[in-house]
Amino acid sequence: MNASIEATAPELEPAPQGLSGEVLPHTPISRVLDGLIRHIGEFSAWLWPVLMLVIIVNVVSRYVFSQGFIELEELQWHIYSAGFLIALSYALLRDNHVRVDLFRERFSFRTQAWIELGGMLLLLGPFIGLLLYYSVPYVIDSWHMNEASSAPGGLSHRWIIKSALPLGLGLVLLAAFSRFTRLVAFLAGSEVRHAD
């Protein structure tokens, strides 16, 4: 794992029990994908202070200058939805999705790895795959129809924000694939363990 991630590792989260990124070996694929996802995830995290400022500007203009902007209101949920969709893969990268550790911590690492491998193939893969498959025409449609907000003064070019959907889902699939290669490498008994 990258040192900077270690530094920001959430001291307030429960200690990682079970199969952590430490145990899993990296693969050439995972190194590239994880790097990509980490960069995108860390960059997109700066959307939150931007969202905060947009809200502040809107509040000030509404209550001080008595002028509300529907564009700014819509911009708020545009930023928020891009933010959470992109963060999905970042959380997967850091293995930070909610799970029930009750029995898991008693399983051996190999069992845990097998379970996760199976889960990715049978649960996560098909689910995200289906959503991704249907989200692409969803965006193309919106682009074709030149979809705009139906609110007076709302934002146009809806396809841009709708693209965050396949983008976010695609990144989740990449993050899952990256972890998948690491799980396979681990189960294949690779001795290589990278600290970086």
Partner: peptide, 19 residues
């Protein structure tokens, strides 16, 4: 049953929906 395997709950929910 699936959540007790320790697989992330979010993806277990989605996967069960597909199945």
């Amino acid at each position: 049953l699936l959540i007790f395997t320790g697989f992330p709950i979010a993806w277990a929910l989605g996967g069960v929906a597909i199945a």
